[in-house]
């Protein structure tokens, strides 16, 4: 009974690993290849030239990683501030023109963001927002906010007003209600929305490029010229670094969330 199931599990795991891991194999090989002649399956020899370049101080990789993460986190924080009240309003109330509000918020999912960005570039120029982190953050909000709102709306849908009423009747004011009742319930949705927001912000090239005008250098700004410039080794190394940063960020968030829940349990276990 048991061993066939275990076998099945390991086969499934292996398949999953292959599906997720396999695309990375050629990336890794390409990033360290030195002479890779067709029709050879493996490179003739290896070199760390690409990695040396990517990790060198002068290439600005680390400051780009820092900028990418800074932008992604600020974008996500701002999204959170906007999305929680927006989701609350959209789920809890019915008002005139609600469909229009929803359409506006979710439009960036359907409309390619650069269409909007071309338009706001001139405005941002006049406002002095180009070439600033703030400008890039504002521009990143448009493609990321819909996902955040969507995720939090789903959480709000499952939160009956009774919970807040119950907390109210136990003497909880608006802030306490939000902190102790609403936030814990929204947390999974917030985590999902924040992950999407971070990933989407990290992957923006065109928006960052146009609004940042080269003064806000994120990882994709460094990566893209190499993809189109046809240096597969460096493009692969950058891609791997990018994937690594994204995975690490998500893992970090996951750990923080787990820690939060553990602290909750630990705190109660002590008392």
């Amino acid at each position: 009974m048991r061993s066939p199931r275990r076998l099945l599990n390991s086969i499934l795991f292996l398949l999953l690993f292959i599906v997720i891991g396999l695309p990375f194999v050629p990336l890794i090989l390409s990033s360290v290849s030195f002479g890779w002649q067709w029709p050879n399956v493996l490179p003739d020899s290896f070199s760390f030239r690409a990695w040396e370049y990517v990790l060198a101080d002068s290439s600005g990789t680390w400051s780009a990683v820092g900028t990418s993460l800074l932008v992604a986190f600020i974008v996500t924080a701002v999204n959170l501030l906007l999305a929680v009240p927006a989701a609350n309003a959209l789920v809890r109330n019915s008002f005139r023109g609600k469909w229009l509000m929803e359409a506006i918020i979710f439009a960036p999912i359907v409309i390619p963001p650069f269409v909007a960005v071309m338009g706001i570039h001139l405005t941002f120029l006049r406002l002095g927002l180009t070439e600033t982190i703030l400008g890039v953050v504002l521009a990143h909000i448009s493609p990321t906010l819909p996902y955040m709102v969507r995720a939090i709306m789903i959480s709000y849908n499952t939160l009956s007003v009774d919970w807040e009423n119950q907390a109210r009747m136990l003497g909880a004011g608006p802030i306490s209600r939000f902190v102790h009742v609403v936030l814990p319930h929204l947390l999974p949705g917030i985590a999902a929305g924040a992950s999407l927001s971070i990933l989407i912000s990290l992957s923006q090239y065109l928006i960052t490029f146009i609004i940042g005008s080269g003064q806000v250098v994120t990882l994709p700004i460094l990566l893209f010229p190499f993809i189109s410039g046809g240096d597969p080794a460096i493009a692969s190394a950058f891609s791997l670094l990018y994937a690594g940063i994204a995975v690490l960020t998500l893992l970090g968030m996951d750990l923080a969330l787990k820690k939060y829940y553990q602290n909750k349990k630990a705190a109660t276990a002590k008392g």
Partner: peptide, 8 residues
Amino acid sequence: GGNDNINR
């Protein structure tokens, strides 16, 4: 910026 030699 697509050539590491030039960048370097």
